[in-house]
Write a protein that binds this DNA or RNA. Structure first.
Lengths: 331, 331
DNA sequence: CTGAAAGCGCTTACAG
DNA sequence: CTGAAAGCGCTTACAG
């Protein structure tokens, strides 16, 4: 019933533990004959090295921490799937840290460090200064995933949010749309802020007015706000929302009030989550490659982990395109 | 830059490591004065015991494994959030194992065991016989989450799927609906099977005909299938779907073909994910408490972990209700 | 290419 | 209530 130990393998193979350990970690250092023999026995017995012991002895655990604000957002779940698939390929296991209560960022971070992971994938976008210091002094590599670090020394993987928002807004303006409403989040996220900047740049260049509202993460709250907005303001030509869930929620409210989509109002998202395929009509989106972003971030992290003479980390921008679906007239 | 060790704490506190270890693990065995002193120093230095060393020495890691088929389904992500919040309360950390490729179930399971977790939360519903054996012989407690084990010796947390499906179908029949179409998954899941059975029982009792179709997990594939169905068959009065995403997708196809929802066709889901609040119209649902299910499963697991004289595990059924929204006429 | 030995950072009987 | 010591299951210089 007890798990097989490395001793057992060594015993039945007639070699020392060191050799067994070597076939696992540095197979090239072991003669093929012995290696094969040991490997066969390992397989027979279904031996798996104890992760704690291995981690303790080698100082690397082949596990990485994923720090995120919540799992209930589709974009985050899909990104983690991307992280996972890449992690699996490289032999890493994932440890989850959810930071939903803002108070204990510091506490959480200590936990992350103490868990002796080899690297950290960070999906929370915004942290207090204090925590930024902790991140900076962290003994293992950190990569920001679909998020931005204020700190130049920390790598990140995302799309060029400012640019994509700018381009999209420009394009919509070129199609004759005048009132473009930008819906962002109440809480500050650097990437949302960048999209907002891109939008503003485009609108200002064209001499149009800015229209921006900030919304909660809660659908029922948003609905009230959106309904109020539509009743008290001139209708927008296009609504641009940083989160698909918010955008779709807005679209539904508009339809309930009798507006036709896309004829009266058009809607566009920036995430391209599964939501966008399930809305009615389907949501046109910037096709932010959220799965890919997770995937690439994890590969990047493994490189940083392996790279002894750490080449300074960098911002990686992934390509995006636009998926025209049924919530816009432009397809 | 190096992490503080237990030695450092012991050193500056003027006590032995054993004492430091005790204030962490068995504080009642240490005199209050020394305890307070040690605690203060721990706090000052921000000391966190190394998780690997602790796990290796104590044989419990205060981490549990969560085994799941994919993260991209909203129901799963929301359940994990529930698991997480409960885990945090009890001081457990989560390790993620995603089993999307069916081939290596066995391999995955070995990994789970080798990772020396204290317990396992299992969200994959269906496994091969071989893996069931492995699960049975597992050295740590296992709980099935929103899934069912064929094996009586493994605990589970869910709702009474057969019953809820039966009751719902009965109710819909009592409202005069004749053709009720049940949409389930192509791949076998025990809980979906149970919902199907409940549906069948209700329909047969009432002398009505069964209408069942099986669908893929992929939205574009489903759309083709649903469109074909609606074109070639008499329209159903109600569509019941085991997965919200499938149900909503069906609803969208129906609307595109010109059917009015809920006037021509009604739709109901069994999951009550976020999707159901973002669809247009909003999806009426069995309010399966997916967050709660995760939460309770985790508490149950901690009990099993702590309970020395393991009281045999059991099926826990959580309550459900029905949320009437806009995709049905019955609210 | 292989083995003996030290050590990773903790916990826990065992004495006192 | 506290300390000295063994041990958890591995890995990795160090010899040979």
């Amino acid at each position: 019933m007890d798990q097989t130990k490395i001793y057992d393998i060594a015993g039945t193979a007639g070699v020392s533990l060191a050799t067994v350990s070597r076939v696992l970690n540095h197979p090239e250092k072991v003669k093929k004959a012995t290696r094969d023999k040991v490997l066969r026995i390992i397989k027979d017995k279904g031996y798996k090295p104890n992760a704690n012991a291995r981690g303790l002895a080698s100082r690397h655990s082949t596990t990485v921490a994923v720090v995120l604000p919540t799992l209930t957002r589709a974009s985050i779940a899909e990104t983690i799937q991307g992280i996972h698939d890449s992690a699996k390929k490289f032999g890493y296991t994932l440890r989850l840290f959810v930071n939903n209560e803002k108070e204990d960022e510091r506490e959480l971070w200590s936990e992350v460090i103490a868990s002796s992971v080899d690297g950290i994938l960070f999906m929370n976008d915004e942290m207090s200064k204090e925590v930024y210091q902790l991140i900076e002094n962290t003994p293992v590599p950190v990569v920001f995933v679909n998020a931005l670090s204020k700190n130049k020394n920390i790598g990140s993987v995302s799309i060029d949010n400012e640019e994509c928002s700018y381009e999209l807004t420009k394009y919509l303006i070129s199609k004759g749309n005048k009132k473009i409403l930008f819906v962002t989040t109440e809480s500050y996220y650097a990437i949302n802020e960048q999209m907002l900047q891109g939008y503003k740049r485009a609108v200002n260049e064209s001499g149009l007015k800015e229209f921006v509202i900030q919304s909660s993460g809660k659908i029922p709250v948003n609905e009230v706000q959106f309904e109020k907005y539509l009743k008290e303001n001139e209708k927008p030509d296009v609504v641009l929302g940083v989160r698909d869930s918010m955008t779709i929620s807005f679209m539904n409210v508009a339809q309930k009030l009798g507006y036709k989509v896309p004829d009266d109002i058009q809607f566009m998202g920036f995430q391209n989550t599964r939501y966008s395929e399930l809305s009615y009509p389907k949501l046109s989106c910037i096709s932010r490659p959220i799965y890919e972003i997770g995937n690439v971030a994890m590969s990047k992290l493994t490189e940083l982990i392996k790279d002894e003479n750490k080449t300074g980390p960098s911002k990686t921008f992934l390509n995006y395109s636009i998926v025209w679906r049924d919530s816009t007239k432009n397809n």
